[in-house]
Amino acid sequence: MDLLTLSFAVINGLLIGGIYGGVALGLSLIFGVMRVINFAHGSFLMLAMYCSYLLWASLGLHPYVSILATVPFLFIVGYFVQGVVISPLFKRERALVVEPTSALLLTAGVYLVVDNIVLMAFGPDVRSVAVDITYESIFVAGLPINLARLIGFLAAIVVAAALSFWLKHSEMGRAIRATAQNRDAASLSGINVQRVYNVTFGLGCAVLGLFGALLVPFFSITPNIGLSFGIKSFLVVVLGGIGSIPGSILGGLLLGVFESVASQFVTATSAAIFSFGLFIAILLLRPAGLMGRA
């Protein structure tokens, strides 16, 4: 393989990897604060993609404009899923009945419900959004860079930075961080932990609202696309250290480049096998993640 193809693969990998990182942000945030792995994470992304698609197909809204709707919509969905479905578990846990897989099971239930509601509504067909930006590229040093992917990549960086800043400097952000460190202490110091959880979950999903819309211009959608994104997100946060925002982006970049370069050598399906293989290898060798403290 020549240098040009390789550098093209690396750049493409970095772009899509940044987006992976952005998609994984919510998973990492929710875990960091609530210690819950959201099995339905990918399903919420899929939901956002369908929202964006629907707005385009019915109203002709450009996916980038649909962000104005998908972000708040996903925030509300997340807020209520946590408030209605997951919070009973936390209330029970306070009574010291701790079942570590319960949260996973609950969110697996959410995954089934969301995926199949969308399947019911839209059918199993592959759908895609045709907008001009899909095919637009800019050239940097003679290499074509797909504009839609570049925008997704930049959005991931910006969102990660903004999220870090917000967590540090806003009142709610501080409450979220305090709760992440010690739920009981936070509760004693007057923080409404339930609300913090609701907002955290909502926020984690709102980020998916953004990336769902940013993905549709160059990613065709099916109702079962969520699970693979969810698993990839989990891999990303494991790579970058679970609960860490910069780690999430870094993990995403790593996965993106790995996938992109690997697919230069093997077929696309084998590449899927490789990323699952990478997932297993990372978990077995460094369960705390590459960046995490072992």
């Binding site: 479905v85 009973p88 578990l89 319960s102 099971l105 609950l106 697996a108 239930g109 959410v110 995954y111 089934l112 419900v113 995926d115 199949n116 509601i117 399947l119 019911m120 059918g123 199993p124 109702p223």
Partner: peptide
């Protein structure tokens, strides 16, 4: 309604866990 039974499975799972 493709997938309706899986929605029910999911709901049952959620209810059971809670």
């Amino acid at each position: 309604f493709l997938g309706l039974h899986l929605i029910l499975y999911g709901l049952m799972l959620i209810l059971a866990v809670i």
